[in-house]
């Protein structure tokens, strides 16, 4: 081997591995958020690499809102079994008891209870002092400003005006009692980097990313997949088969599909090169109001 300089992807990979190791070495009870999406798949792959030949020295946490795509849950369980990591599943039982759903209670209240509050519950229950997430700075404007090691106070809130300076790769990992850290090892990756890495490393991802015929309904220009019988159909509305795929995955009633023929990774990457919309457009929670993501983050949303 005569290579002396790392390629762009190799450099990103090494940086992420260094961050993951720093978490394992510096915190008492770290946990990795596992959302089952492509970024989580990349994060899991990086964690396996970071600690090899040891097992991943922290558990993975999935906050199950009960409205995830069925294929996501199947993929999650398959992956946990194949790689043998500790998987913690958490659902907000108060929300389940009250029958909280995105149809009757609105996307914002539903997300607040089943996602934000559920995450806080799970983090408090596990007494986790560091939670690793797969957010990237190219996703959204407030994320572009977040540190890699992002400090949270005792109520999990982010103070964007008072972030710790973060120089070189010398991360300040120290916490006072009750405080915690959110850590974003793939902060510096772009969506294109994620896809090319998945392709070159042959990383398994949920099949929902690939175009297939799926039952959908179209509402105000957004294609919603009818994943189970809980989706209430409007009068006269009837699901129809369309060849669609997802650029981002979440709760099926809140995740828009795109019409696409891209059925494998090369086609997805080529399609993305030509695409003219950003990936979070498919997420209905972001477009509520300007600054909505920042507000959610201050309240403790990941």
């Amino acid at each position: 081997m005569t290579q002396t300089r790392l390629t762009h992807l190799q450099a990103l990979e090494a940086e992420s591995i260094e961050i993951l190791r720093e978490v394992a070495a510096s915190f008492e009870r770290p946990v990795m958020m596992y959302s089952i999406g492509k970024d989580s798949s990349v994060l899991l792959h990086l964690a396996r690499k970071a600690f090899y030949p040891s097992r991943i020295p922290f558990p993975l946490l999935h906050v199950d809102t009960t409205f995830k795509f069925r294929e996501m849950i199947a993929f999650r369980d398959r992956t946990a079994e194949e790689y043998g990591f500790d998987l913690i599943r958490h659902t907000n039982q108060d929300g389940v008891r009250d029958g909280i759903n995105p149809f009757d209670h609105g996307s914002s209240r539903y997300t607040d209870i089943m996602k934000t509050a559920a995450l806080r519950q799970a983090l408090n229950a596990g007494k986790y002092d560091a939670a690793i997430g797969g957010a990237r700075r190219d996703e959204e404007k407030s994320r572009a400003k977040e540190r890699i090691f992002s400090h949270r106070n005792a109520s999990h809130a982010w103070d964007p005006k008072n972030q710790r300076p973060e120089l070189w790769r010398t991360f300040n990992t120290r916490l006072n009692p009750g405080e915690s850290m959110r850590v974003f090892p793939i902060s510096n990756w772009t969506e294109l980097d994620v896809w090319t890495y998945i392709y070159s490393e042959n990383i398994p991802i949920v099949p929902l990313y690939f175009a297939r015929p799926r039952p959908v309904v179209e509402r105000s220009g957004t294609l919603i997949m009818v994943d189970d019988e809980r989706l209430p159909l409007l009068p006269g509305e009837r699901p129809r088969e369309e060849v669609v795929r997802f650029r981002t995955l979440g709760c099926y009633p809140l995740t828009g599909a795109i019409r696409s023929d891209a059925a494998d990774l090369p086609s997805i990457i080529m399609e993305m090169q030509a695409s003219r919309t950003s990936e979070r457009e498919g997420r209905l929670i972001d477009s509520d109001s300007v600054g909505s993501m920042e507000k959610k983050k201050q309240e403790g949303y990941f």
Binding site: S142, A144, K145, P160, K161
Partner: peptide
Amino acid sequence: GLAAEREQGITIDVA
């Protein structure tokens, strides 16, 4: 990116 910045028209943090 941050709401406070849009209101004040300044840039608070590294983006």
